[in-house]
């Protein structure tokens, strides 16, 4: 409750600040959703099954109208030479970690937004552009975003990406758990295409039971840990692996929700008694200038 009122206060001050300085900011109408429904969905990623075919990458792009190459071109395994991160053009990537023993396969790990139960991005966003939906998805609303990129700093998994390459209306992009598809009763695109059913879509609670059941049935196959069950207060995407998660570049995180971190930023603002109005006026001004400059650059580029 206290959380909510502070957030409202912040937003209101942002509005007033923007209004006073005459900088037009996008209006923030309502408090951000932060629903934790007991039937929220999730995905259990069994990395011991993944073959690194990258069909999920292709499906994700296709479903989000991001330009994708031909499906056959995704057979190219040379991309595994470098570790990749999701970015504004690729909302999910698969990375490969070399096999350990002679008779073992390399380990392929799909990376995307974890859809945290206590999402840091939601808490960090001062205009409520992020929301945790009833079905577990953490989604982003472009109408509200002011481009401050707090979410990128706050996310413990470094997921939200900014369209730096785009001059006009750059957006924050991240995996949206295929909100538009699941809304219509469809499966997330990556879940649907995965040939191996590495990605099991289901109620988060049920997935946790399933994960523990798999571990107890095949103790040699899995490490006894379900990544995402407790990390940063729990995530909707959960992982099983045959090796220590740290070796697969999963960040070592506590069980406390990460929002604590971002809230500290806000608390800090108050601690130094910087009046929020002045702060946002400053932010707004900087951004406005930036935007204009970029638009100018864009125009120039077009003229050449």
């Amino acid at each position: 409750m206290a959380n909510q009122s502070r957030r409202n206060f912040l937003k209101t001050s942002a509005l007033i600040g923007a209004g006073l300085t005459g900088v037009s900011s996008k209006p923030a109408k309502a408090a951000p959703n932060n629903i934790l429904d007991e039937n929220r969905m999730g995905v259990l990623v069994d990395t011991t099954v993944c073959i690194g075919c990258r069909k999920c990458e292709w499906a994700c792009k296709t479903a989000h109208n991001l330009s994708a190459q031909s499906i056959e071109s995704y057979n190219d395994r040379s991309v595994f030479k470098n570790m990749r991160r999701p970015d504004d053009k690729t909302l999910t990537v698969v990375n490969e970690y070399a096999a350990k023993g002679d008779d073992q396969f390399p380990v392929d790990v799909k990376v995307q937004c974890m859809h945290c139960d206590k999402p840091a991005c939601v808490s960090a966003c001062i205009v409520g552009a992020f929301s945790k939906e009833k079905n577990g998805s953490v989604i982003w609303n472009g109408d509200r975003c002011i481009g401050c990129r707090y979410c990128m700093v706050a996310c413990p998994f470094q997921v939200p990406a900014f369209e730096y390459g785009k001059a006009i209306q750059p957006e924050v992009r991240k995996c949206d758990f295929c909100f538009d598809r699941t809304k219509d009763g469809k499966l997330p695109a990556c879940v649907e295409i995965c040939p191996m059913e590495v990605l099991t879509y289901g109620r988060r609670e049920e997935l946790i039971d399933l994960a523990h059941q798999k571990i107890s049935l095949y103790p040699d196959r899995y490490v006894n840990n379900v990544y995402g069950e407790h990390e940063v207060g729990g995530t909707s995407w959960l992982y099983l692996a045959g090796r220590d998660f740290h070796e697969l570049q999963f960040p070592k995180l506590g069980t406390n929700p990460a929002p604590g971190v971002s809230e500290a930023i806000q608390h800090g603002i108050f601690a130094y008694f910087v009046p929020p109005i002045a702060l946002y006026a400053l932010f707004g001004g900087v951004m406005w200038l930036n935007k204009n400059r970029k638009q100018d650059e864009h125009k120039e580029a077009n003229h050449e």
Binding site: P195, E197, Y201, E206, L210
Partner: peptide
């Protein structure tokens, strides 16, 4: 793939 019993892989998987 959209099913109630997710304890074993679907046919494609």
């Amino acid at each position: 793939r959209k099913r109630t019993d997710i304890s074993k892989p679907d046919l494609k998987g």
